[in-house]
Computed example of a mutant assay.
Amino acid sequence: MSDLLDFQDAFVAALGGAPSALSPWLAEGEAGETGLSVYRNTIAKGCVDALAANFPTVASLVGDDWFRAAAALFAREAPPASAALLDYGEAFPAWLDRFPPARDLPYLAGVAHLDRLWTEALFAAEAPSLGADAFAALSPQALGAARVALHPSARFALFEAGLPSLWAGARQGRDDLELSEAAQGLLVSRSGAAVAYRVVGPADCAFLAACRTGGSLAEAMGQAAQADPDANLQSLFAALIADGVFGDLISGAKP
């Protein structure tokens, strides 16, 4: 087993540009570059195809040729760490942010980030979601002191401009895409095998951020009110419960 693992490590290193790593397994004078090039081409195509599948909104905005050329460059700089490509591309949004040809598309890295949140929600761990009955059983005082853990699939991000609406419109294949100036957030979660998303406001994101860092529900409500004094907090909380973004209820004060 150790020899097999050593060979696998050497093979990955060779594909990454260090063919001498395979020397112990090759006959004398046999470089192995011809065979490696076949594997490299196959892996490169697999990486590009995986990125196209994981960042479909980005691809729809820039076109197939632009996207596949950029994806091929990214794959050369950031090859996959494992053979599983289902969630490949964690670093792609940050890479796009510093990719010179994308300078005229300043929203593109943000769109890629939202695509990534969708993929993360899809492959997050399975877990039940809290329903309204879990909160209805608590007194108002106990409810305010309680804390909630977010569901493993819950993802959210806030933007100064209306990027989430643009992302959602592009994802739905709409042609009337506009980037509004209003701050917006996107909430993504999964129930069973279905990933759902909803454009939300700053108050929702502030509420969820407080929950994520261990704040009580009262503290989360306070953060939401501070983010948007006009927000209807009761409706906000009810909508988040309906979204299934809460995974566990912890009564009492934070330890």
Rank of each mutant, 00 (worst) to 15 (best):
V38S: 10
C47F: 05
A52C: 10
G46V: 00
N41G: 15
G46Y: 02
T34A: 14
V38K: 04
Y39F: 14
A52N: 02
G46D: 03
C47R: 02
V48M: 07
Y39A: 14
N54Y: 00
T34I: 10
V38P: 04
A53G: 05
K45T: 07
V48F: 06
G63K: 08
S37D: 15
C47L: 11
N41D: 13
D49A: 15
A53L: 10
C47S: 13
L61D: 00
P56E: 05
V48I: 15
D49M: 09
G63L: 10
T34K: 02
C47P: 02
G35S: 10
T34Y: 12
A50N: 10
G63D: 13
G32L: 01
T57D: 13
V58S: 06
A50Q: 04
A44T: 12
T57W: 04
V38N: 08
V58Q: 01
S60Y: 01
T57I: 11
E33N: 11
N54G: 00
G63W: 11
A50K: 01
N41M: 06
P56D: 03
L36A: 04
E33L: 15
L51M: 11
G35H: 05
C47E: 06
A50H: 09
A59Y: 00
L51N: 00
G32S: 03
L61K: 02
G63C: 15
G32R: 01
R40H: 07
A52T: 08
D49L: 11
G46F: 04
C47V: 09
F55C: 11
E33C: 12
A44Y: 04
G32I: 02
N54F: 00
V58I: 09
D49C: 06
F55L: 10
D49K: 07
T34F: 12
E33H: 13
A52D: 00
G63I: 11
S60G: 08
I43H: 08
F55I: 04
A44H: 09
L36D: 01
D49G: 09
R40K: 15
G35L: 01
A50M: 13
L51R: 01
T57G: 07
G35W: 01
T42K: 11
D49F: 03
G32Y: 00
E33M: 12
L36H: 06
T42I: 13
G35A: 13
I43G: 09
G35E: 02
V48P: 06
T34V: 12
R40W: 04
L51A: 05
L36V: 11
R40A: 09
E33F: 09
